[in-house]
């Protein structure tokens, strides 16, 4: 359920139900239609989430009796260098997963803004979007090979005489985190570019004509027309990529398992480790809940930037 989940949330906002013709009566059977979905959603998502919040208030090793600690786990998190490092890494990943692809895609869109009706765009769209559909485990496997000591990255460096720069990119304390981050950039850039190009296509051509008539250059045109016109797409791209960065798990699990040392640990990995390896279930749940709160906040914050849309 990779990247798309949260931003779908932007969509239709609830409103007082539209009256549809002369039918003022309440239709109780609606609950019958909703019941099966609610049962599954409640049992396998909402209830465990509520449990997660509850367990996060206890000290529990998963086996013996739990003891109440109130907000103790959250207090410990704040003071725990390992947890702080993991959230710090998530922040670095946001730069790579979200900021870099969005900025790069915006630059490209600025340059190619008028390529919207180019021939062959469909082909490029399909190729650029491909990383989005490949399983993250497969993505991780392919990048493991690229970053290996005799992998493509080092091959290219040797080719241009930079033997000194070669290294085991994922095994080096200094480069492991950026190396993982760049994989996220690789996944995200296509999504952003496709989003922005489709957004530009929806901008009124007359706005561009008008800007040009007033003598605006490429630069002015971008800031006066393209950027405001893409506000919605930028909000979506940011939500998707920031959330993906925050909940990164598969990629790190397969490529580095958090190493070397703890240089690439991320919150989701830490929660997994604590719950299933070191028996700190309460603390693991506290990390998970914090992650959920952060994601909810990001989604709500970014959706405020988004222009209001009419109810679908």
């Amino acid at each position: 359920m990779a990247t798309v989940t949260p931003a779908r949330a932007h969509g239709p906002r609830p409103r007082a139900p539209r009256p549809r013709g002369p039918r003022p009566r309440r239709q109780w059977k609606a609950y019958l239609y909703l019941a099966p979905a609610l049962a599954v959603l409640g049992t396998f998502l909402l209830y465990p989430f509520a449990q997660s919040i509850w367990i996060s208030l206890f000290d529990w090793n998963g086996l013996s009796l739990a003891t109440w600690t109130g907000l103790g786990n959250y207090r410990d998190m704040a003071g725990d260098p390992v947890v702080r490092a993991a959230f710090g890494h998530a922040l670095v990943l946001i730069a790579f997963f979200a900021v870099l692809p969005v900025v790069l895609a915006l630059l490209l869109t600025a340059v190619m803004g008028r390529a919207v009706r180019m021939r062959g765009l469909g082909f490029f769209r399909a190729v650029l979007f491909l990383p989005q559909v490949v399983a993250s485990v497969v993505v991780a496997t392919s990048w493991l090979a690229l970053y290996a000591p005799d992998g493509l990255v080092n091959q290219l460096l040797r080719l241009v005489g930079l033997e000194v720069a070669t290294r085991a990119w994922l095994g080096d304390f200094g480069t492991a985190l950026p190396a993982v981050g760049l994989v996220g950039s690789w996944v995200g850039i296509g999504l952003c570019l496709v989003l922005f190009l489709s957004g530009v296509a929806q901008i009124d051509r007359e706005l561009y004509e008008a800007a040009r008539l007033e003598g605006a250059g490429l630069f002015r045109e971008f800031f006066a027309v393209t950027l405001p016109g893409l506000r919605g797409q930028i909000a979506v791209a940011l939500t998707l990529t920031v959330v993906a960065a925050l909940k990164t798990f598969d990629l790190v699990y397969v490529t580095t398992s958090g190493g070397p040392g703890t240089s690439t640990t991320v919150p989701a990995l830490l929660a997994y480790d604590r719950a299933f390896r070191t028996g700190q279930v309460g603390s693991a749940c506290a990390i998970g809940v914090t992650l959920a709160v952060l994601i909810l906040l990001v989604t709500l914050l970014v959706s405020r930037v988004q222009p209001a849309e009419e109810d679908a």
């Binding site: 909402l46 465990p48 997660s52 992650l291 959920a292 909810l296």
Partner: peptide, 17 residues
């Protein structure tokens, strides 16, 4: 809410249940 809550935050209790 179901759309936004990530699996990472509830998979642990889900496992025990």
């Amino acid at each position: 809410l179901g759309l936004m809550v990530p699996l990472e935050s509830f998979v642990i209790p889900l496992y025990y249940t």
